[in-house]
Every structure is written in structure tokens, then in C-alpha cells.
Amino acid sequence: MINTNTNKRIKLFNIDIDQLTMKETVERIGQWLLSDEIHNHYVVTPNVDHIVNLHSNVQFKQAYSGASLVVADGWPVVLTSKLLGRPLPEVVSGSDLVPALFDYFQHEKSRPLRVFLLGAMPGVAEKAASNIHDNWSQVQVVGLFSPDFGFEKSEQASLHICQLVSEAKADVVIFGVGAPKQELWSKQYAKQLNTKVILCVGATIDFLAGEKARAPMWVRKIGMEWLHRLMTEPKRLAKRYFVDAFIFPVLVFREWKEKF
């Protein structure tokens, strides 16, 4: 296992990103989860849309600064790091990280992994839980909850979620309500969840439930999963991708200009 006291990070787009492979990321999180200590770590996965929003959202950036791990979700971020001479080893997407973590515990027989699914539309987490139990016998879904729209603005609703997670005695929370909501909420309430790790991983619960289809592996390997998602969810993603396509190159140019 890797040494969790070693923190390899680069500065990119004015945030610190961990220089970790998928294997190293899983091992680090695995060590946290196998420990008897509760540190309420939360993990964030910056992609192009995050980078664009971090540029103008101060609270979002503050939430990132409080994260225990920041791993790059998307080939554009990794490619930019290499072009600027501060290379990240590979893409560590949230939707791949969660199954990889489950695989890790499938082979780690000392104890099962207790999971709380927080997010997705009503009924979706139940499907995800069923699929998880079918595929990973060492992973136990001990709780699930689909928050109402606007829950993050209600202290009462937020504390209710904290109570549900704490009572479930979950090791890890798979948190999927979209950015920046999930990161801002984790920054504010992580210490009240009484759990070891919170993974801010967007649509991962939908993928686990089979509600949304992942791109074929060859598409992911060539860094074109974003195009697959745009084609499958054009109404939701077209505007976001259009804005990102204009702003992200500007941010890359600024990074390049500062370096050279």
C-alpha cells in the first residue's frame, strides 16, 4: 500500500491536485476505510466543468481546499497538466473510482464495506443497491436517501441527512447530487456525518443503477466519454459544454502564459 502521509500534489488552475493513479487513490481511500478512526474525509474529482466554475465561485474553491483528496476526472485536465510540465499520471473519474473501490473490498476480506447512497432521483438508489449486492458480496448498502430539491439550503433537512448517515454507521457515503452542490455541502457538514469518507461523485449512483449508460470502454480510453454523455443527455449538458468549450481554453492559455 502507498504511504498515506506522502502527499504528492501539483498546482493547476489555482487548485492543488493529487498526483495519484487510480490504484494509488483506491489504496489511500481503502486505508482510511480500514482504519478504526473517523476523520470525515471528503474526496472531489475536478473535470472541465469544475475548473470553469472554480474560476468564478469562491465558495466552491474553498470547498476544494478542504478536501482530503483531489483527483482529476477528465482527459482535458490530465492533458493540460502534461503540456504544462506538471503531469498527472492518469484520469481518476468518480464513476470509475467507486467500482474500483468496491473491487478492492471484494478482495479485502477482513471486513465488509458499509456504504450509504446519498443522491439520485427517488427509486434509483434502490436499484443501485440491488446491483451492488449482486456484484460485490463484500459491499453492504446500509442506507440510502434521495434528498429533496433545495435540501442544501435547509439546515433542518441537512441535519436530518447527517442523522440518517450517522445512524447507519456507514464507512463511506457515495454522494451524487452534482457539483458544486455536493462539494459545498460536504465542506459544511462532513464532520457531522460520523463516517470515514465521502465521495463526491456526481451521476455515479445513476450509473450503478443502470439508469444512465456509461460510454463503451474504448470511448473512455480515448478520452471521448464527454461526447457520449452529450449525445445521450443533450438537453441537460449542451449549454454546460458550450460554455465550458469557450472558457476552458482561455484558462489553459492563462496557465501556459504564467509558466512561460
Rank of each mutant, 00 (worst) to 15 (best):
I2D: 10
T4W: 01
N5C: 11
N5G: 13
R9T: 12
N14P: 05
I17V: 12
D18P: 05
Q19K: 15
T25D: 00
T25Y: 00
D36I: 06
I38N: 13
V43R: 05
T45N: 03
P46S: 01
V48I: 12
D49G: 07
H50Q: 00
V52Q: 00
V52E: 00
S56D: 15
N57V: 07
V58K: 15
Q62F: 04
Q62K: 14
A63G: 14
A63C: 04
L69E: 00
D73T: 03
P76N: 08
V77A: 08
V78N: 07
L79F: 15
S81A: 08
S81F: 02
L83V: 11
L84H: 09
G85K: 09
R86M: 13
E90C: 10
V92R: 00
G94T: 00
S95D: 08
V98M: 08
V98D: 04
A100V: 01
L101D: 03
L101V: 04
F102N: 04
D103E: 15
Q106E: 15
E108Q: 14
K109S: 15
S110N: 13
S110L: 09
L113S: 03
L117Y: 05
L117S: 01
L118W: 04
G119T: 00
P122C: 02
V124M: 03
A125D: 03
E126W: 02
A128Q: 06
S130C: 12
S130G: 11
I132W: 06
I132M: 08
I132N: 01
H133W: 09
V139H: 02
V141M: 03
V142D: 01
G143A: 08
L144M: 14
S146G: 10
D148N: 15
F149A: 14
G150W: 04
G150H: 04
K153G: 05
K153P: 05
E155R: 15
Q156V: 15
I161C: 10
C162E: 11
K169Y: 04
A170D: 09
V172K: 02
V173G: 02
F175C: 06
G176I: 06
V177R: 04
Q182M: 09
Q182I: 01
Q182D: 07
W185Q: 04
K187T: 04
N194P: 13
V201D: 00
V201Y: 00
A203Q: 02
I205H: 08
D206C: 02
F207W: 10
A213C: 09
W218M: 10
V219L: 12
R220D: 05
R220E: 07
G223E: 09
M224E: 12
W226N: 11
L227I: 11
R229P: 08
E233Y: 09
F246R: 13
I247L: 13
F248I: 04
V250W: 14
L251G: 06
W256D: 06
K257W: 14
K259M: 14
F260S: 15
